[in-house]
């Protein structure tokens, strides 16, 4: 039996509300109706925002029609980074408070995070060709985003191997926390280093973006975020069902 680790004490209300969702049955009671709601509303809002971006948004003075790529590229970039932030927070919760669903939440965020990081890189490359005259440059923003995609792939492989081989779930959790160092590097890369990539157009409460682009972008971000949430819940339900099926099959095999 392992040594008992000291737990960090939390305010009673926070700890009890966090652990209220530790029960898989309670989690499923919430996740079952929420998953289709998030996915369907996400699909509807994303479709509306992209139709607006493709057919109704005006062309931009300097970038012309290619500015329409903004409505896919920027939300997927934010969610690519947001996905790893979610992994890091869930990993911290797992390592410190050993919340039973935290590892599932981290694994659930990995695949959609990786897909959105890949879409961000692909659409950025497609946008770069007419805007910069090149598909790719090894500058800080593009390289750190590519590193994020590799981190996702490494995390998915590591977490899968740990589940398959029966290792400790703390190993991918540590990887998730350490990998979070890349998130501020991506964010500040365009400020720290010379880059073809433009600096941020949106700050906290400030925007350098014209209203027709800003509102379309916010709608697309909302739609993609709802889809992200729905996919995370679907992945968590799939991982939980796999664990429950394996446990049941093992018990049945022992009874024979």
């Amino acid at each position: 039996m392992g040594a008992v680790r000291p737990r960090i004490s939390l305010p009673r209300s926070f700890a009890s509300s966090m652990h209220a969702f530790a029960n898989p049955a309670r989690f499923l009671r919430i996740a079952r109706p929420l998953t289709p709601v998030l996915l369907l509303s996400g699909l509807a809002i994303t479709a509306a925002a992209l139709v607006y971006g493709l057919f109704f948004a005006p062309a931009e003075r300097l970038q012309g029609e290619t500015v329409r790529i903004l409505f896919i590229h920027v939300p997927t970039a934010w969610l690519g980074m947001g996905g790893w932030t979610a992994i890091a927070i869930a990993s911290l919760v797992e390592l410190v408070w050993r919340h039973p669903l935290a590892a599932l939440a981290a694994r659930g965020a990995a695949v959609p995070g990786a897909v959105f990081a890949a879409v961000c890189l692909a659409t950025g490359s497609i946008w770069g060709r007419p805007a910069w005259g090149t598909w790719w440059v090894w500058d800080g923003r593009l390289t750190s985003m590519l590193v994020l995609l590799f981190l996702y792939i490494g995390y998915i492989a590591l977490a899968g191997a740990v589940q398959r081989e029966g290792g400790s779930s703390r190993i991918p959790a540590i990887f998730g926390l350490v990998g979070a160092v890349n998130i501020p590097i991506i964010h500040y890369s365009v400020i720290w280093w010379n880059s073809l990539h433009q600096p941020p157009s949106l700050g906290m409460g400030s925007s350098a973006m014209a209203a027709p682009f800003l509102w379309g972008l916010l709608a697309a971000t909302l739609g993609f975020s709802l889809l992200f949430g729905g996919v995370v819940l679907a992945r968590m339900r799939a991982l939980l069902a796999d664990i429950q099926a394996e446990a049941r099959l093992r018990r049945k095999a022992q009874e024979v």
Binding site: L39, I69, I72, H73, I126, W127, R235
Partner: peptide, 20 residues
Amino acid sequence: FVIAAYVVGVGATLALVLWS
């Protein structure tokens, strides 16, 4: 370029949702 970016983005997102 616009159409290529939308095909990649929409295709990957739909594939992700359906597979999940």
